[in-house]
Design a protein around this nucleic acid. Structure first.
Lengths: 244, 244
DNA sequence: GTGCAGAAATTGGTTGGACCATTGAACCAC
DNA sequence: GTGGTTCAATGGTCCAACCAATTTCTGCAC
C-alpha cells in the first residue's frame, strides 16, 4: 500500500513565515556571524506581525544556536543561516554522569574513525600540510609542558575533520565537545590524562598521508581506546556517580 | 589557569526557570510521551509568570522536539524529559541536495559500523532474538514483495541500535532518517533500490550473534557501501541538482 | 580638548488583557 | 446510529505598556 503524500494544510504558521523571511533577509544582506539583526520592533513593523510573534520565532532560532540575544544591545547572528537548512536537535538524557560521557565517547569513536578514513582518501597536499602543522604544534607543546594539551590536541582533530570533506563531522563532534568541555578540561584526577593517546596522533597522520583509509581508521580506534581507559581510571578514582 | 565555576546570577532567566519547574513537574508526575501537559494558562497562574513567558519556554521545548502543541487541544509530551538533560542542536546547511544526502550517509556509515560492533559485544540473548525476529520479518517481506521494504529494513537497523546499549545511536540516526524520509521513501528512480544491501543484513546478524565486533563492523561498512552506490546511480538518473 | 559621571535613548524581557482559530465534546434533530 | 450545531477549552496572535540591561549622548570639571 503506497502512502499518499498529503501534508496537512497550514492556515497559521506565522512563526515559520517570519523565520523564512528573516533567513531570506540574512542571505540578501549577506550577514555573517557576529553581525547584528534588525531589532524586534523593526521586524514586527516591517513584517506586519506582532512583536510577540517575532519573539517566538527568534526564540526558536536562539534554541537552535543560530542567534544570540543581548538585552539592551540587540540580536546577533551566531551561525550561518540559509533558506534550505535542516535542523536536527538532539537531547541527551542524563548526560551529566559518567555513563553519558562514555556514550558520547562511543559516538566520537565512530565519527573519528570514519573521518580519519575519509581524510586519508580525500585530503590534498594543502590539507596534509595543515594537519601536520597542527601535529607539530601539539607535539611541541607535549614536549615543553610534559603532557597533553587539550587545546592543541583539539586543533589537530579539527583539522582532520575539516579535511574529511564533510562538515558534519566537525559540527557533531564540536557540539559534543562543547557540552563536555568541563570534563575535558578537568581530567578527573588522572595525572597524565591523555598521555597514552599521544603517539597515535602521529600514526594517524602517517596513514592519512599515505592515503591508507583502513590504517587511519584502525589507528583512530586505538586512540579513542586509550582515552576510554583514562576515563575509566578517572571514574574509579572519583567514584563519579549519577548523583549531582 | 583553572576556571572558576561561578555562573552569573540571573535576575532575568524566567524561561529557563519555567522549563526547570516544568521538567520537575513531569518527573514528579511521571508523565510519559503522548501525555498531556497542563494548559498554558494554568502554568502561567501556578508559576506566577505571564502566559507569554510560558509560551516562550514551551516554544523552546517545541523546537527541541520535546513537546508538541496542538491548537484547540493542548500541549503533549513528545519525548522523555528530565532535569539533567543536555541539548545538542545541529543545523545542516544546504541539506536538501544530493551532496547533503551523501554527507548524512557518511555519518550513518560511521555510526552504523560502530553500533554493529558494540552490539556484537553487548547484545544478550534477548537482544539477539529480537534482532533475528526483525531480520526474519524483513527477509519475508523481501521474498513476498520481491524487493526491499524500507519499513521492515528500518526496524531491523533500529533493533541493532537499541542493542548497542547506547541510545545516542538511535537518536542521531533517527533524526537523520526523519530529515530525509522523503528521499528514502522515493528511491530516486532506481528500480531495485536497496536490493544489493539485502544479503548484508544476514551477515551482520551472524557476526553479532557470533560476538565478532570487527566482522560486524566490516559487514556494516559493506552494506552502507551498496546504499551509497544506489544513491549515486539515482543521482545520475535524475540529475539531482542544488536548484529546487 | 580630555575624561568622566550622569542623563537619555535603545533594545531585549515581562506583564496583562483581549480577541481569533481550531479542536473536541455535548447535544439535538432526523 | 448519523450528521449537524453549539459551546467551552486551548493554543495562536495582537496590543500597549512597563522593566532591566546596554549603549550612546551630553555636559561639566579639569
Amino acid at each position: 500500500m503506497t502512502e499518499f503524500s498529503l501534508p496537512p494544510i497550514q492556515t497559521t504558521a506565522r512563526d515559520d513565515a517570519v523565520l523564512k523571511a528573516l533567513a531570506g533577509f540574512v542571505m540578501q544582506e549577506k550577514l555573517e556571524p557576529g553581525e547584528k539583526l534588525p531589532t524586534e520592533r523593526i521586524l514586527a513593523e516591517r513584517l506586519k506581525v506582532s512583536r510577540n510573534t517575532v519573539r517566538e520565532a527568534l526564540t526558536r532560532w536562539e534554541g537552535l544556536g543560530l542567534v544570540e540575544r543581548r538585552q539592551g544591545s540587540g540580536t546577533y547572528l551566531k551561525a550561518a543561516v540559509s533558506l534550505d537548512m535542516l535542523h536536527m536537535p538532539l537531547t541527551l538524557a542524563g548526560g551529566n554522569d559518567f555513563t553519558g560521557l562514555m556514550r558520547t565517547l562511543e559516538i566520537r569513536r565512530a565519527l573519528e574513525a570514519e573521518a580519519a578514513a575519509l581524510c586519508a582518501v580525500r585530503a590534498d597536499k594543502e590539507d596534509l600540510a595543515e594537519i601536520e602543522r597542527k601535529l607539530d604544534i601539539m607535539e611541541e607543546a607535549f614536549r615543553t609542558r610534559a603532557g597533553m594539551s587539550s587545546e592543541e590536541d583539539w586543533e589537530f582533530h579539527q583539522a582532520v575533520y575539516r579535511a574529511s570533506g564533510n562538515p558534519l563531522f566537525e559540527q557533531i563532534i564540536s557540539a559534543m565537545h562543547e557540552l563536555f568541555h568541563r570534563f575535558w578540561e578537568h581530567p578527573l584526577g588522572v595525572r597524565d590524562f591523555g598521555h597514552a593517546s599521544f603517539p597515535y596522533h602521529r600514526t594517524i597522520f602517517n596513514c592519512i598521508a599515505a592515503h591508507d583509509p583502513e590504517g587511519a581508521r584502525a589507528e583512530a580506534l586505538k586512540l579513542i581506546a586509550t582515552v576510554e581507559n583514562d576515563l575509566k581510571r578517572g571514574a574509579a578514582n572519583l567514584k563519579l556517580s549519577d548523583r549531582k
